[in-house]
Design a protein around this nucleic acid. Structure first.
Length: 576
DNA sequence: TACTGGTGCGCG
DNA sequence: AAAGCGCGCACCAGTA
């Protein structure tokens, strides 16, 4: 490693078995290159991180970072070229003439396979093109230059710089979440299953309580052979006994009065638990006291994370009790109260809505303002406004909010109108919705032609409204996701600053990079779980709170609004 | 045997 | 049948 000025960025690329590291100065000019044998890569990166703390520029975070984490090495900052490309390619804050919009080799799907150097990187698809973004150093350098110039040339470079940094920090967090894992007590999980479903059957059949409720259903149907797991067959069985529902969904069934309803609802509940999070899930997804799902940053169009495998974002509340801190450790469980409405207030500059939210439950504030009568009404009305409800109680209440909070409601109404007209909308930091599909556009133009049928017009109108609800929600959901990324990134930095505990208090199952420090263990849109040594529990809880305040300032400056958290320190993630 | 689409339900 | 957004996953049925 050469001495010299500290590089601001180090671009990593893989070429024929070795790794090239290109050092760039603060103006992104090349200062030098190092060829690093694969065997020495981790050490080289750890040394460079300690010495320079550069921003690492690489093609795909999990492919570089999973291996480092496995050897106990963390990095503070990175620039994920694949994720940032996806943002810049569509962003209205980037000129259409920018080269990044045409570097299509970087339009790659998220990599679900988190292991580095696996054949996945070189897999061929049907057309015999390599899957995934380019991994070599020259391609990375060129794309990085395109991205930098796209950001800097735009009308609001600060926002895109923030967004790309936050997105990249999220990528680091996602890899770290997988490496550290969520502490999971398989015995507690098993106990919940046994209590709910009955003993685990030794020979493949259903557990006792599930079988019993199936029997009650079949008996109420008067058909000992009734099939309960096939929707069409179940529907026919219900019709035969006079339960004239159109679907077999819980909501519709609950409105019926018939002896089959109660056992059937119970059967559905139990069978859902067994098939989604039963013993098979436990043995597939929990190992060595940790649930290690794959988080997929940017996996949702709005910028929210998705997950792949294990249903990480759908863990039923019923099982939260199985989330257990290691001995001598604690969990800090925190979620944001009414994140999306608060974000809407801030991004629209609606001081009346911000005042309703400040220092209290936002829905209570709306009630106090007199716009609606009850908390429940406030909630339904606000959700309806953000989702585009037009009917029912929600649709009826929305106009009242429009009068009380014209700026906030104006923002989402404008977004809806733009979407219906075929336009694109953007989040606060500049993530832009995809343009309408060709089929959508074709349907709209067909409906305006002279020979258009009534059906053409109806369909075009329905699709337009569908898209309007999507863009309406996009601006809010997407900006909330940006706030959450800023929260995560800031929190991660604060936790890293807490001193490691001694070996005696370590939690070895969290892996070499996390066993002696508080670390993020779970993230779910507006909620985090931190796993922390007991002695740092209060500091970690404070860090969670401070990070939320910092995220609010980072996005919205001095706008007078707080992002209230519910923070608990406990041994389990169980709520209340 | 592998796929796709529909249904239903878990989460925010 | 949820009204009204965004997801992932299991299961079944129909098809290739």
């Amino acid at each position: 490693m050469d001495a010299g000025e500290a590089p601001a960025w180090i671009v990593l690329g893989r070429d024929d078995g070795s790794v090239t590291a290109v050092r760039l100065n603060g103006d992104a000019n090349e200062e030098g290159r190092d060829e690093i044998p694969a065997s020495g890569l981790t050490t080289w990166i750890a040394d460079a991180e300690a010495r320079w703390a550069p921003r690492w520029v690489w093609h795909d975070t999990p492919q570089w970072y999973a291996g480092l984490l496995a050897e106990g090495v963390r990095v503070a900052r990175c620039h994920d070229l694949r994720l940032c490309h996806a943002i810049l390619r569509d962003s209205v804050l980037v000129a259409d003439t920018a080269a990044v919009k045409r570097s299509h080799e970087w339009d790659a799907a998220p990599h679900v396979d988190a292991e580095p150097d696996t054949p996945a990187l070189f897999e061929l698809d049907d057309a015999h093109h390599a899957v995934g973004p380019p991994a070599d150093a020259d391609a990375a350098l060129a794309e990085f230059a395109r991205q930098r110039s796209a950001i800097l040339a735009g009308p609001q470079p600060g926002r895109l710089r923030l967004l790309t940094a936050a997105e990249s920090a999220g990528a680091l967090v996602a890899s770290e979440l997988r490496a550290a894992g969520l502490p999971w007590d398989a015995e507690v999980h098993d106990r919940i299953l046994v209590e709910t479903l009955g003993d685990r059957p030794s020979s493949g059949g259903p557990p006792a309580k599930l079988a019993a409720s199936a029997e009650r259903v079949r008996s109420a149907l008067g058909d000992p052979a009734a099939s309960l797991d096939s929707q069409p067959k179940l529907l026919r069985s219900l019709h035969r006994v006079g339960v004239l529902v159109e679907s077999t969904s819980r909501w519709e069934l609950a409105e019926q009065r018939h002896p089959v309803i109660e056992p059937l609802l119970e059967y559905k509940k139990l069978s859902r638990l067994l098939s989604a999070n039963g013993w098979a899930w436990l043995s597939e997804w929990v190992a060595d006291g940790r649930f290690r799902p794959v988080f997929v940053p940017g996996g949702v169009v709005t910028g929210r994370w998705a997950s792949s495998g294990g249903g990480a974002l759908q863990l039923p509340r019923q099982l939260r009790e199985a989330v257990r801190a290691d001995p001598g450790w604690r969990l800090v469980v925190a979620d944001v109260a009414q994140l999306e409405p608060r974000v809407l207030a801030a991004m629209s500059g609606d001081t009346a809505l911000a005042a309703a939210a400040r220092g209290r439950d936002l829905y209570a504030g709306i009630v106090e303002s007199g716009a609606v009568a009850t908390r429940q009404e406030a909630k339904i009305a606000l959700l309806g406004a953000m989702y585009g409800a037009t009917t029912g109680e929600s649709g009826r209440l929305v106009p009242r909010l429009r009068r009380a909070y014209p700026r906030a409601m104006g923002l989402v109404d404008d977004a809806a109108r733009t979407g219906e007209d075929g336009g694109v909308v953007s989040t606060w930091l500049g993530r832009t919705s995809p343009p309408p599909s060709e089929a959508w556009t074709a349907a709209q133009s067909r409906a305006t032609e002279a020979e258009a049928s009534g059906a053409d017009e109806t369909r075009a109108r329905r699709w337009a409204r569908d898209r309007g609800r999507f863009t309406r929600n996009f601006v809010v959901q997407g900006t909330a996701a940006e706030w959450a990324l800023a929260w995560l990134a800031d929190l991660r930095t604060r936790l890293t600053a807490l001193p490691p505990v001694d070996a005696a208090q370590s939690a070895p199952r969290s892996g070499p990079a996390f066993q002696r420090q508080p670390h993020l263990a779970f993230f779910l849109h507006d909620e985090v779980i931190v796993h922390t040594p007991q002695e740092h529990a209060d500091a970690a809880a404070q860090a969670v709170t401070d990070a939320a305040a910092a995220a609010g300032r980072l996005l919205f400056g001095d706008f007078p609004l707080d992002f209230r958290l519910d923070v608990r320190v406990a041994d389990t993630a169980l709520k209340d």
